[in-house]
C-alpha cells in the first residue's frame, strides 16, 4: 500500500515541486485545480509571467475585492501585475500555439508511458469540453502534469497506455505526483525523484507506466 497523505499536503507538495522548476522570466500557463497553486510557490528571486488563455499576460493573485471584469481562465478573479497586458483570444492562443509559452501546468486523468495525456473527458460520464487544454499541450515548450499518484479508488494514474480520449499525444514533459517526479528524456519516461515516504518497490507497485530509473535518482525536492 501507498502511505496516505493529507489531501492538502499532497496538493501543495505537487504545486511547490513544479514551482521549483520554473526559471526566472518564464511565461507560464496554469490550469485549474492543483496547477493554480503553483503561483503561490514561485521561489524568491524568480519572476514568472502568468498567462491565462482568456487574455491576461501577467496575471497576479486573486484581489481582495472581487471584480468580474478581470477573470482568470479558471473563473476566479485575477489582479494585473506591473508589466501585464490584456489581449483578445486569437492573440492569446497565438501566444500558446506559437511557442511563446515556456511551460503549462495541467492536471491529469491518465498519463502514460509515451507521455500521452488524457484530462478532458470520461465518455458517457463527464464531457465538460477541452477548453484550451488541447492548444496548451500542443504549444507550450514544456508540459507539466500535476496529479495525485493514484485516483480516489487507488488505481494508478501513471498508466501503461491511456484508455481515455487523449488531450494530446506524446506531450507530457514532466509528471509530478506527491510521491515522485518523472521526466521524459529521449522519448522515455525517467524517474528522477522519489518522496521519502515510499520505496521504489512501492512506487512500482502503484504505477503501470513504463519508466526507467535515473542513475541520479534523488529525494523529491521541496519537501520540508
Amino acid at each position: 500500500m501507498l502511505p496516505v497523505l493529507d489531501e492538502e499536503v499532497v496538493r501543495h507538495r505537487i504545486a511547490k515541486r513544479i514551482a521549483l522548476d520554473l526559471e526566472d522570466g518564464a511565461v507560464v500557463n496554469l490550469g485549474i485545480g492543483i496547477p493554480t497553486l503553483v503561483s503561490d510557490y514561485v521561489p524568491e528571486g524568480v519572476s514568472v509571467l502568468i498567462q491565462t488563455e482568456n487574455g491576461v499576460v501577467g496575471a497576479g493573485p486573486k484581489p481582495e475585492k472581487e471584480d468580474l471584469r478581470f477573470i482568470g481562465a479558471g473563473g476566479r478573479c485575477v489582479s494585473l501585475l506591473p508589466g501585464s497586458s490584456l489581449v483578445a483570444s486569437d492573440t492569446s492562443f497565438g501566444l500558446i500555439r506559437g511557442g511563446h509559452l515556456d511551460a503549462t501546468v495541467l492536471g491529469a486523468l491518465e498519463v502514460d508511458s509515451h507521455g500521452n495525456l488524457a484530462n478532458w473527458m470520461i465518455p458517457g460520464k463527464m464531457v465538460p469540453g477541452m477548453g484550451g487544454a488541447m492548444d496548451l499541450v500542443t504549444g507550450a515548450k514544456t508540459v507539466y502534469v500535476a496529479t495525485t499518484h493514484v485516483d480516489k479508488k487507488g488505481r494508478p494514474k501513471l498508466v501503461k497506455e491511456c484508455t481515455l480520449p487523449l488531450t494530446g499525444a506524446e506531450v507530457a514533459g514532466v509528471v509530478v505526483t506527491e510521491f515522485c517526479v518523472v521526466r521524459k528524456t529521449d522519448g522515455k519516461m525517467v524517474l528522477t525523484e522519489i518522496a521519502p515516504e515510499v520505496t521504489l518497490e512501492q512506487l512500482k507497485e502503484h504505477t503501470t507506466m513504463d519508466f526507467e530509473v535515473s542513475p541520479d535518482l534523488c529525494p523529491m525536492k521541496g519537501i520540508d
Binding site: G55, D67, G72, A88, D90
Partner: peptide
C-alpha cells in the same frame, strides 16, 4: 473599445 478580460472573443 473593450475593458479588462472582456475582450476575449468579441473582436473576432
Amino acid at each position: 473599445t473593450y475593458f479588462g478580460t472582456g475582450r476575449n472573443f468579441n473582436p473576432a
